[in-house]
Every structure is written in structure tokens, then in C-alpha cells.
Amino acid sequence: MFTNELIVVAILWGVGSLVVPRLDRFFALTFTVIASVLCGLRGGGLDYDGYVSMIDASRAVDGLDVAVVLAVAKDPGFYLVNVLSEFIGQDYWIVFVLMALLGFVPKFMMADFVGAYRTLFLVFYFFLMAPGLEFAAIRFSVAIAFVGLFCISGYVKKWIYAFSSFMFHISMIVLVVAFFGRIRGFIFRNAFFVGFGSFLFIYIVLGDISSYFEDRSGSLGAGNIGSIIFPVFNFFWVVVFANSKRITAFMARDVCFRSVASLYVYFSLLSMAFSLSFIAASFRFLEGGLFFGLYAFFVYGVNRRFDVVVLSCLLSIIFQLIGFNIVRGTWEALWVI
């Protein structure tokens, strides 16, 4: 499935960018292209068969009936990629390569904001997050990539990217709330109360909301105390992060970091809120939170020194991502050496 080849490329490119830092952008660009193509050509892996079924169902749709499109392709963006791919050919790999490019290229554009550590950021992402996103939850991967561009772009492009993220994963619409200044500030300053309060509200008032969805398997054990270990652990460190004086001081001076740090907190609070009611949604939001947390620390590290609190928050993210891959079996499923 080319995954072992990608491991070799990632290590060589990461080391090369550190040895010859002036070529960092070249290493980042070439790694993005290689990773996108090899990821798209994998021909199997996590969720692969499910997406093949979605592609077949999308191609069988006659016309553009919105209800039917959403039923078979889940999100309109994936349906449109499927339609466009047919102009190139009928092979499944075309759809997967296009989705991989849509997932990786925006992350390369985001990497420009971490200076000479572009390649290192992409390599960290590849090892810690790509197994669960680029090789599995490809629609969500594309969606958060566009959300990332939303953070670093000017006003007009910002809303184009926001719309694009909604097209690939409808859950992204909840993030609009986070970008109204006063609401965003309130959520950040009161992370503990917002997270814990929303958790209680959803669980006590709404209960197991996965029951409202046809696919009950998506709940992954909603209501099980074991399902909240990761969201709760992450929630603790997010509260520490949101109350760090160094973090809040830097947020006041850097617009990009302020947006990304807010997404880290907001995604994480959503994960906590759904942790006992709809664990599939909780884990997906957790992945989004950890992605923006990892990116936020790369942006921060270019400009600031780490103190004990900030370094502890970063290590907590890395620890969670390692544990996440082990528990979900994403490394084991992909990388057989």
C-alpha cells in the first residue's frame, strides 16, 4: 500500500530539511506531492471499502437531488470530487488521489506559517495524524485543512475556505460560532465552565444522541465511561493551555496564532461535550482539536520560547496522538515493517 515507502520518505525528508534548512520549502513541497500520490494509490486500508461503496453509490445517482446526494456521498464536496474524477477516468484511485491532494496541499500552505520547520510539521502530522485522517477519515481531513486556511487568510478568502470546509464535512458549520470575536473570547476565557457545562447539558438533557442517527454503530459505545478517557484528559490540558499567561499574551499579538489556538480549544470543548452522548462525533472533534493544537505549537515555537506549562501542553498532545493511534489500531493497520 506504499505506506512503508512513505515512512522512508518522511524520515529522509525530515532529516534533510534539518541538515539543509534553506531547502526546507522544497522538501515540504515535494513531500506533500509524494505523500498525496502514494496515499491516493494505496488501494486498501482503513475505511477504504466504505469509500469505494460511497463512490459506486454516488456514480449511480441520476441528477443532483440534494437529499439523494447527501444520503450516498455524506457531503456534497465528496460527491463533486467524485463527479470531476469521472472526466479523468473511472478508477477509484483517481478519487483518492484528488482527496489526498485536497487534504495535503492546504496543510502545506499552512506550513508556511511555521517558518523553517515546514517539513518537520508535515512529517509530525504524517506520523501522528495521517493514519487516522488521510488514510481513513478523508472527508474530515479535507474539511479541517480548509478550516486551517480559513485561519491564515484574508477576509474574502476566509469565507471561501469556510464554505469549502462545510462542503466536505457538514459538522464544520459549528465552528462559525468560534469566530465571532466576543463569543470566541468568552469561550477561551471560560474554557472549563463552557466545556463542563456543555458536557452536562448534552448528556443530561439530550442523552445518547447517537440514537437519532441511522448508523448506531457510529456511537462506538456512547455512555461508556471508558469512551471519555481521551476527551477528559485532553480537556484538562486545554484548560491549562487557555489559562497560560504566555499563550494569552502571544495571542494578543499574533492573529494567526489566536485563530488556531481558539480552534484547538473549541474543537476540544466540543469533544468533551459529546464524550458520553455521541462518541464518534467526540473522537472526530478530538482529532480536529489535536491537529490545531499541534499546528498552534509549531506556530508558537517559531516566535517564542517554551516554558514548563507550554511544553507540558505540547507533550500532552503528542502523548494523546500516540495513544490514539495505538488504541484505534491505525498504525498497526497501515505500517507493517
Rank of each mutant, 00 (worst) to 15 (best):
A249R: 09
T248N: 04
S171R: 04
R246H: 02
S219D: 09
A222P: 08
S217A: 15
I228R: 01
S198P: 11
V240W: 05
F192N: 04
I225P: 13
L220I: 08
A222C: 10
S227I: 07
A242C: 11
F199Q: 01
I173P: 00
Y203K: 12
Y203A: 05
G185M: 06
G207N: 01
T248Y: 00
N243D: 06
S219K: 08
V239W: 05
F186G: 08
I228G: 03
S217R: 07
L175D: 00
S219E: 07
F179R: 14
N234Q: 11
G181E: 11
R216T: 14
L206M: 15
R189E: 15
N243H: 10
L220K: 12
F180L: 07
I225Q: 13
G195A: 14
V176R: 05
G195S: 08
I187W: 15
A178W: 08
S198F: 13
V194A: 12
Y212T: 11
F199I: 06
V176N: 06
F236C: 14
W237A: 02
V205I: 14
L220Y: 07
I209H: 07
A242H: 05
V194C: 15
F213L: 13
S211I: 14
S227Q: 12
F192P: 09
R189N: 15
L200F: 00
T248S: 02
S244Q: 06
L220Q: 05
V239I: 13
G207K: 00
G181L: 09
V238F: 00
R184V: 03
I204P: 01
R189P: 11
F235V: 02
V239L: 09
A178P: 02
F201I: 05
F241L: 06
M172Q: 04
F179C: 15
I229H: 04
V240N: 13
V205Q: 07
V177H: 10
I204S: 00
I173D: 04
F230A: 09
F180G: 02
Y203V: 12
D208K: 06
F236V: 15
F188E: 01
M172P: 01
F233E: 13
G218Q: 09
G218N: 10
R182K: 13
N234V: 08
V238W: 01
F193R: 09
L206F: 15
T248Q: 04
G181S: 09
G195R: 03
I209W: 11
I202R: 10
V194E: 15
G218Y: 12
T248E: 00
F199N: 01
V174I: 09
G218V: 08
I173L: 06
R184T: 05
R216W: 12
I183M: 08
V238L: 03
I225F: 12
V232G: 04
M172T: 06
G223Y: 13
F235Q: 03
G181W: 03
I225Y: 14
I187E: 13
L200H: 00
